[in-house]
């Protein structure tokens, strides 16, 4: 199976690899997937607690090229967004942007899960209610 140019680009030049201080109150960390499934994503956001703006985003991913590209793209999109805007990122947007084939849609789902999970972690740290029901995936 051939990868799209955009997947290859994100794989070769991944954006925002790294680690933020997960103990910080303004950092939200999402760790999703499982090693035995062959995909683990860790996505972190640094939120400005005054403006509610995501000022930085970092990821590390264990997985195939599409999983790496999905998380790399997610960090790119997250930066500069508010939490509410970030919650609007849909896995199908990632599928479309990276031209993921059907067998790789789960990579985009995982990236969306990682975003929600990171936001939840941030909300809990801020003393807010965690998000309720997961919205359904496409």
């Amino acid at each position: 199976m051939a990868y799209s140019d955009k997947v290859v680009d994100h794989y070769t030049n991944p954006r925002n690899i790294g680690t933020l201080d997960k103990s910080s109150k303004t950092v939200g960390t999402g760790l999703v997937g499982a090693p035995e499934c062959g995909d683990v994503m860790r996505l972190q956001i640094q939120v400005n607690d005054v403006t509610g703006m995501i000022e930085d985003a970092k990821f590390k991913t264990f997985g195939c090229g599409s999983a790496i590209a999905s998380s790399s793209l997610a960090t790119e999109w997250l930066k500069g967004k508010t939490i509410d805007q970030a919650l609007e990122i849909d896995n199908m947007d990632i599928v479309e942007e990276l031209a993921l084939p059907p067998v790789k849609i789960h990579c985009s789902v995982l990236a969306e899960d990682a975003i929600r999970s990171a936001i939840n972690d941030y909300r809990i740290k801020q003393g807010l209610e965690p998000l309720v029901a997961e919205k359904s995936h496409h």
Binding site: L31, P35, I68
Partner: peptide
């Protein structure tokens, strides 16, 4: 490995088997 969260956890001495992984 530089971009693998598992490698980072391994290097920090975290037992991956003790981690509660999400359903997938």
């Amino acid at each position: 490995r530089d971009m693998s969260p598992l490698w980072e956890m391994f290097k920090e001495g975290i037992d991956l088997k003790s981690v509660q992984w999400s359903e997938h």
